[in-house]
Each structure stands twice: as structure tokens, then as C-alpha cells.
Design a protein around this nucleic acid. Sequence first.
DNA 1: GTCAAGATTTTTGTATACAAGAGCCATGGT
DNA 2: ACCATGGCTCTTGTATACAAAAATCTTGAC
Lengths: 224, 224
Amino acid sequence: MSENIFYKLRDDIENGIVTGEFEPGERLDETQLAMRFGVSRTPIREALMQLSAIGLVEIRPRRGAVVVDPAPQRVYEMFEVMAELEGMAGALAARRHTEEDSAALLAAHEKCREAVLSEETDRYYYENEIFHRAIYTASHSGFLEEQCTTLHRRLRPYRRLQLRVRNRMKVSFREHGEIVEAILSGNTDGAREGLRSHVAVQGDRFGDLVANLSNRERRSGRLG
Amino acid sequence: MSENIFYKLRDDIENGIVTGEFEPGERLDETQLAMRFGVSRTPIREALMQLSAIGLVEIRPRRGAVVVDPAPQRVYEMFEVMAELEGMAGALAARRHTEEDSAALLAAHEKCREAVLSEETDRYYYENEIFHRAIYTASHSGFLEEQCTTLHRRLRPYRRLQLRVRNRMKVSFREHGEIVEAILSGNTDGAREGLRSHVAVQGDRFGDLVANLSNRERRSGRLG
DNA sequence: GTCAAGATTTTTGTATACAAGAGCCATGGT
DNA sequence: ACCATGGCTCTTGTATACAAAAATCTTGAC
């Protein structure tokens, strides 16, 4: 589909980052990547430039690109902003959703229910993404949808960690239910608040997040 | 300061876009830009890649880069999101501001007052930016500050147009006053709402915006 | 044995070369 | 006179070449 190689490369590398294949802090060697993807360094560099503009990698002059490794504080802030944007999307969705939006939202919600019943967190993780995307779409704000999608994508690895916390999947699904109801009934404030607290990392969840982050770091051998 | 040329190039080109030197819809010829900046095409391309990732230019395969020309609807949506994020920054600032934050905010506010009195919209435009940045800083959320700054920057040309509307400067400054008071008194909801409505393009302002946009397009000769 | 300074190697940053697609112009046919 | 087709040119996309800086290794001194 994409005529240009650097689009594919960007997506591939980005994917490698959000799936954890390239770990935070890891150095991304241009020559190595070039060999791996069977291209020259030029398109690789162009892809890395794009990722650096998005904030997924950091390019230090003459020292190459590394996968950014945000401090827990920063990750928390990202969730905080995400919560606000999702709340906004929910509020807009409550006002603007069409028949198709409702259908898509309910369908996604059902898929989530199945995932919960099957107790497969990976499956829930996947269906959850579709659920949230359905809300972005229902907001009927193209720009907001874009912003949400980008940030959602960037937070992927951390969300995956969050789901590991005991009972998080069930609690998440219950919250989904309330959100669906608020949106479908046109309750803008309910939808906003529901999504805000659903996404935000509040109370115990912050501790869980930090714990997961440092676990991961310890595993990857960069910390005592 | 910046070792690498493509950082400077990116900033220069971005600046050219937000100041209107490169007009929306304009094609950015790599060779031309390379000559103009006295470099080869390679770093130019890398700069354009970054701008494309940010959303300032669009790169169509084999057809080069053009300055994005968002539809009025899209610009409206951008202001809508900006309003929400600024509201959030205001709410956080109301809770978290330090002594220095207060001082910076008040200083920026005073500068705005001087600009209003001098009736120089360009000067107000400049001081206004500093005022808003002071709020981002006071939010003490690095990520939010980053997001706000980026979006604020992207909306620059449109804000400039908005200030041309009769009395907008005075009204804007009055709103600033209320925002300052809310933040300093720790009134989170007041700060949020004050900033939201200050930034949002509501009511008549939407019409003004659209009118300004189509004026500009007509002037640049791309519309009847 | 350890540390430091110099040399070597690796890797990034930029320029240039080349291939291929898009756009444009001209020529010819209807 | 107008449209279509073919070739020419211009521009982009990718590879490669080369320079300079960083990282690494080696050697020598203490």
C-alpha cells in the first residue's frame, strides 16, 4: 500500500518499540536496522527522525538514537493527559454519537465481555483498544481522535503492564459498562468523568505502575 | 548550540510555516530549500520528515512535501482540544503553583496590560504567548507543558488572525485577569473554566475565524 | 596491575550519485 | 482545433561515499 519505504519502516520500528522488542533505553543502530530491513541507512534515518519528532526515540547528536525511557513521573503525567483527552472524547461522543457509533461501541463492549469471561488478558488488551477507538470515532472530532490514538499508542506498553494487576480486567470492564451507558444516554458529564477516572492512574494504581516499571527495569538489567 | 543541522533546519522551516512565510498548501521543494539553507537535500529531508510526523507538513509519495492546510473544521477542533488542555493546565496550576510561578504569571500579566495600553496587537500577541507559557510551567506537568507548547505553536497563525478581530485584545486581557485570580487563589474549577472559554472558539468567534481563513485563502489566490 | 594517552575502529552526519516515477510539453492524429 | 500519446525533464526516493566525531582498543608509563 505505502509507496514509500520509510512509512513502513517507521511503523515497523514504532511497533517494535511499543511491543517491547526494542526496550526503553536501547540504542538503535542505524547500520544494524538497515541490514535487518534490507535497506540503506537513509530511509532508516528518516524513519528515526519521525519517531524522534513523535517522542518515541531520542536522537542525541553524534551519539545515535535510543528508545526513550520516560521516568515514572512522566508516564504518570502522560496518563493524566490521556485521561483528560479521553474524558473530552467521551463527552463529545455522548452528544454527537450516531446510530453506527452506538452499534460499534456496543459491539466492542460485547467483545470485551467475552474477553473477560475467557480470562485472557491479552485478548482483553486487544478488544479494549477497539473499545476506546470506538469512543474516539464517536466524538466526531478528527483532530481529537488523532491525538487520542497517538497517545494511546504511546502508552501501550504501560497499559499492558497495568492489566496484569489483579482484578484490573474485571474492574476495567465494569467501568466500561458505566461509560457505555453514559454515552448512549447522552450524559456528557457522566461520560467525561467515567472515562477520566477509568484512564487516570489514581491511588493504588500509581503504586502498581511504578512497581511494574521498576520490575521491568530490573529484568532488563539496567538497575540493581 | 545544536550540533546537528537538521534540528536548526526543522526549527527554521517550522518557523517559516507558523509565521506564514511558507503558506498553507505551498509545496516545499527539497532542492530549493537545500540551496536556500546552503546544505544538501539529505538534512532537509530529515527536517521535513520530522515536520511531517508533527503534522505541519504532509509528504505525499513521490510528490513531495506541502504545508498542511487544515480545513476550518479541523482548525476549530484543534482549538477545542487546546482549550481542554489549557483548562487542565490551569486547574493544575491553581493547585500546584509556587512562589516563582505566581511571580512569573503576574509579571507576564503586567506585560500584557502594557501591550493592551499601547494598542499594539503584535506586542500583545507576543506577551500573550509568554503568559500562557507561564501557566503551562505552573502546572508542573512536564508532559502537559510539552503538549500545550506544541499545539500552541501550531495554532500560532490562527491566533494571530483572531487578534485582529475588533476588541479581541481587550476582551482577551480581561479574561486573563480572571484566570490569574482563579489560579492564584487556588480555584481549580475557575481556572479550568476560565481558560477553556478563553481559548475555545465559541459563538461569534467561530464565524470570525472562518471569515479570516477564507480571506487569507482568497488573498493567496487559491480560491475564487 | 592500573590508569592514561594515543591510535584504531566504529558510527554518525552530510553530500553526492543514480534510478524511477510524476509532471509537462510537443507532436501527431482525428 | 482539440485530445491523446510519447518522450523529455524535473523531482523524489534510495544507495553509496566520504568526513568527522565518538567509542574502543592498545600500548606504555608509573
